[in-house]
Structures are given as C-alpha cells and as structure tokens.
C-alpha cells in the first residue's frame, strides 16, 4: 500500500519534471503520459485491499465476495481516464506532426514565436 503511494508520488514528480523542464515536444508528451499514469496508480492503490480478489463474481466466490473483493469503482474511473488520455495523446501527437511540418524542429524554444 505504502510502496504504491510512494511510487505514484515519484512517478508524478518525474512526469511534472518532464513536462516543465524538457525542451523536446515528444518528451513533454511522454511526461504527460507518465503523470497521468501516476494518477492511475494512485487511484488503483486507493481501492486496494490486502489479500483481496478481483471484483468479478464467479460461481465459486459468491459467499466471500463482499468481504474479500477490492473496490471496483477506482478501476472504472481509471478505465474512463485511460480513454481520455488516449484521445489527448492522439491529438498531441497529431499536432506535433503538424508542428514538425511547419517549424522543421521539435524544440519548444524554437517554436516559441508568439510573444507580447
């Protein structure tokens, strides 16, 4: 439990670091993915239960289900969030391709033309 929380914190810091410090657009997008995934890890670890079972009712586990199964709601939230992240990443990569065509570079310092 604690180790997942620490991992998600470390991952989140790495993600924010990537987005803020790195100059390459692809690296920034990777950083966004890492950040979102750290949040997913946090969500999943919230629903965690020691010696828990998967929240799927089968023929054999109906009696112990309520006392053993992990919380399924965070998993549903993570699924939703993954779909959102998919579309954000797809859009980001598409825009990055267009940016490369216009500017012939992925360096964010050189793309920074709008000022004032």
């Amino acid at each position: 439990m604690l180790i997942t929380l620490i991992t998600s914190l470390v991952l989140g810091i790495i993600g924010v670091f990537c987005v803020v410090v790195k100059k390459n657009l692809i690296k920034k997008i990777v950083g966004l993915s890492i950040l979102t995934n750290s949040v997913h890890l946090l969500l999943i670890s919230i629903g965690f239960r020691p010696q828990g079972i998967a929240p799927i009712i089968t023929r054999s586990n109906q009696i112990i289900f309520a006392s053993k199964a992990v919380d399924p709601l965070p998993q549903a939230l993570v699924l939703t969030s993954i779909v959102i992240q998919l579309s954000v990443t797809a859009l980001a990569l598409g825009i990055t391709v267009m940016a490369f065509r216009h500017f012939k570079t992925l360096d964010t310092d050189k793309i920074n033309k709008l000022r004032g």
Partner: peptide, 20 residues
C-alpha cells in the same frame, strides 16, 4: 497554420497538466 499549431501546443500541454 503556424500560429494555430503553436497556440494549440501550448494550450494542450498546460491544459492537460491542469486536468491531471
């Protein structure tokens, strides 16, 4: 075009950070 792509990139990165 150039302006649109640059604006969209900035908006996208800052916006996704804030949504996270």
């Amino acid at each position: 075009d150039k302006d649109a792509i640059e604006g969209a990139l900035k908006y996208l990165i800052i916006g996704s950070l804030s949504s996270s």
